[in-house]
Design a protein around this nucleic acid. Structure first.
Length: 276
DNA sequence: CCCGGAACCTGAAGGC
DNA sequence: TGCCTTCAGGTTCCGG
């Protein structure tokens, strides 16, 4: 599942390969990947220069001239590869560039998208702050969490509160901060928000250093796996021992999403019955 | 505005 | 062995 660290890893891998070139072709082997606007809108990107490759949340952005951009979202099973994958792969689109580089958009489940933005601003503005942006602060996080009574786990997945956190890193950050996933977002103490803020940065930064987590279908553009999952404390570790206290990792459902946590390091609120 | 749920998609896994 | 159901989760859309 590509989240912020995985998309950032992809960004760093492809930027040096295509910056300064022009797009020569966007072949949509599966037209539905173009989203509701359809394949036609992407044709205006042909011939445009690639000024930079950016990441915003989980969106990968090929920045063209005048704030135009081709925006890729990998959703659940998408991957960007620099070499043509094996025949049994599920290539949905191929982007070609003037220097001969080709990007293969592989996506088993066809949930990923490629869309043309004639102006990137609406996309950039509607997402919440970047967790690793120096301007992002614990106070900002506290401010937005105070407006929500939803479980903190659900709040971390809300891309308006912070952009780029997905299921795996939300679980890891909550464990590191010692917060139960069902605790209402607006009931976190100032200290808890402070710990959570730092934990989010810690787990994301470390995962980027590990070039992402390959729990399932994530590959780097060079075809290699990431290693961040090797040090996961709770994510996808049901029944395994918590690295802090040895307690068996639990899994509950929070808003229809699996939530892994340590019942000892992340106790439920006083007065509530521990959920499973 | 806030919140919860359905829908999208396909391969893996589990039940019988 | 094989059919069937359920599950996985990021995002958007819709209804209360």
């Amino acid at each position: 599942m590509p989240e912020l660290p995985e998309v950032e890893t992809i960004r760093r891998a492809i930027e040096p390969a295509i910056v300064g070139t022009c797009i020569t072709g966007i072949a949509l082997l599966d037209p539905s990947i173009a989203g509701p606007e359809g394949p036609a809108s992407l044709q205006s990107a042909i011939g445009s220069p690639v000024r930079a490759v950016l990441r915003r949340g989980k969106h990968l952005i090929l920045l063209l001239e005048r704030n135009r951009g081709v925006v890729l979202h990998l959703r659940m099973t998408g991957a960007i590869l620099l070499a043509e994958p094996a025949a049994q792969a599920r290539v949905r689109a191929i982007l070609s560039f003037t220097n001969g580089v080709r990007l293969f958009f592989n996506d088993m489940r066809r949930l990923g998208t490629i869309r043309m933005y004639e102006d990137l601003k609406p996309l950039l503005v509607r997402l919440g702050p970047e967790p690793l942006d120096p301007d992002f602060s614990a106070d900002m996080l506290a401010q937005s969490l105070s407006r929500h009574s939803i479980p903190i786990k659900a709040a971390l997945l809300d891309q308006h509160i912070a952009a780029g956190i997905g299921n795996m890193y939300a679980d890891e950050a909550l464990h590191r901060a010692g917060i139960h996933p069902l605790k209402p977002a607006n009931e976190l103490s100032k200290e808890e928000v402070s710990r959570l803020f730092q934990s989010i940065r810690d787990v994301l930064t470390h995962a980027i250093e590990c070039q992402g987590a390959s729990v399932d279908t994530y590959w780097q553009p060079n075809g290699e796996r990431g290693t961040a999952h090797d040090v996961f404390a709770v994510a996808h570790r049901r029944g395994a021992a918590c690295p802090i206290c040895g307690t068996s990792i639990n899994r509950i459902m929070v808003r229809k999403r699996g939530a892994y946590f340590c019942p000892r390091c992340q106790p439920a609120r006083q007065g509530t019955v521990a959920t499973n």
